[in-house]
Amino acid sequence: MTADIITDPVFYAVAVPAVLLMGVSKSGFGAGFGALATPLMAVALPVPQAAAIMLPLLAVMDAFGLAALWREADRSLLRLTLPAGLLGTALGTLSFGLLPTSTVAGIVGALTLLFLAQRQFFPPRAEAPPPPRWWGFGLGIAAGYTSFVAHAGGPPALAYLMPLKLRPLVFAGTTAVFFAAVNASKWIPYAWLGLIDLRNLTTSLLLMPLAPIGVWIGVRLARRVEPTLFYRLLSLGMLLTGVKLLWDGLRGWGA
C-alpha cells in the first residue's frame, strides 16, 4: 500500500521554494515567476501530479490575494479576459492527454521569449494605442488553457496586460481575480480526470502553511516597489519562465 503522503526529500526541496514563488506571484508582484512553480515541482513528480498538488494551495493563495486586492481589479478588463480564460480551461479539459505536457510547455516558453524580444527590440511608442481587444480575448484563452495544463497561465496574461501599463496594484488586483476564477473552474475537471486523490491532497495540506506566507511577501513588495522596477521584475520573471518552459519542451521532444 502506498503512503498517504509524499515522503521523498527531493520533492520537498523543490516544492517549498515553488509554493513560496507561486504565493509571491499570486499577489501580482513578480507574476511572471509563478509559471515556474509547477515545472520546479515536476523535477520530482510527473507534471499532472505536480499540478494536482498545487491546486489546493492555489485556492488558499487566491483567497488571500482576493482579500487584499479585490477592490483594485479593473472590471472592464475582467469582462473581456475572464470568459476567455474559462473557455481556455474547457479546451484544456477536452484536450487533456492529446498533447504532451512538454509540447505545451515548449510552445508557451517560445511565445513568451518572442514577446519579450519584440518588446526589447521594437519597444512600443509612448503614444501607441493599447493592444486590440481581440488580442486580449485570444491571450485570455491561452492563459486559461496553459493554466489548466500546468498552472502556467501567467505569460499569456502578461503579454496582454503589460503593454497596458496599469498601476501595480491595479495589475495585481486584475490578475488576482482572473486567476482565482480560472483556478476555481479547474476543480471538477481535475477530479473527473482522476488527478485529485488522497495522497496529493494530504501532501497539499502539509505544504499549506507556505501559501499565505508567499502571498503576504508579494503584497508587501507590490505596495512598496515603484512601477518601473515592478515591470522590470515582471520582465525578468517572464524571461526565466520562457527559458525554463522552452527547455522543458525541447527536452521532452528529444526524449
Rank of each mutant, 00 (worst) to 15 (best):
G173D: 02
L77T: 02
A59I: 06
L246T: 14
P212L: 09
L207T: 05
W135I: 15
W253D: 04
V149W: 02
T202F: 12
Y190F: 14
L69C: 02
G34M: 04
A159I: 12
G237V: 11
N183I: 03
T241D: 03
L201K: 00
T101Y: 08
Y190P: 11
G97F: 02
A63Q: 00
G214W: 02
V182A: 10
V19L: 05
Y190L: 03
L158T: 08
A44P: 11
G249N: 10
S25C: 05
Q118S: 10
A63Y: 10
L201D: 00
L82R: 03
K26Q: 13
M208N: 02
L198C: 01
D74T: 05
M238H: 07
L210T: 02
L40W: 02
F33I: 09
I53M: 14
L86V: 06
W134C: 11
F178M: 07
V60T: 10
L250E: 03
A117E: 06
A142K: 04
S204Y: 11
D62H: 08
P132N: 06
I141K: 00
V108M: 07
I213M: 09
A128C: 09
H151T: 11
A157P: 11
P48D: 09
W192V: 11
S95T: 15
L111I: 09
G153R: 02
F230N: 03
P123Q: 07
L169I: 12
P123H: 08
I196C: 08
A67M: 15
G136S: 08
A211M: 06
K165G: 05
V177N: 05
V108W: 01
G136W: 03
A117H: 12
F148L: 05
A42W: 10
A73G: 11
P155C: 07
S25P: 12
L229E: 11
P163I: 07
T175W: 01
P46M: 03
W135C: 14
G194F: 03
A51R: 00
Q120H: 14
R125Y: 00
L80K: 09
A59C: 06
F121C: 04
A176E: 02
T175H: 01
A184M: 14
L57Q: 04
V10D: 12
L116S: 05
L240P: 01
P155G: 07
R224P: 00
L169M: 15
I141Y: 09
A126Y: 07
G153N: 06
F11Y: 12
I213N: 10
L58Y: 00
D4C: 03
L87A: 15
A15L: 07
G154L: 09
V215Q: 03
Y160K: 06
A222S: 13
T174W: 00
S147H: 05
L210V: 01
T7G: 11
T2W: 14
L198Y: 10
A128G: 12
L233A: 01
D74I: 00
K244M: 15
S25A: 13
L98W: 09
W216R: 13
A73H: 08
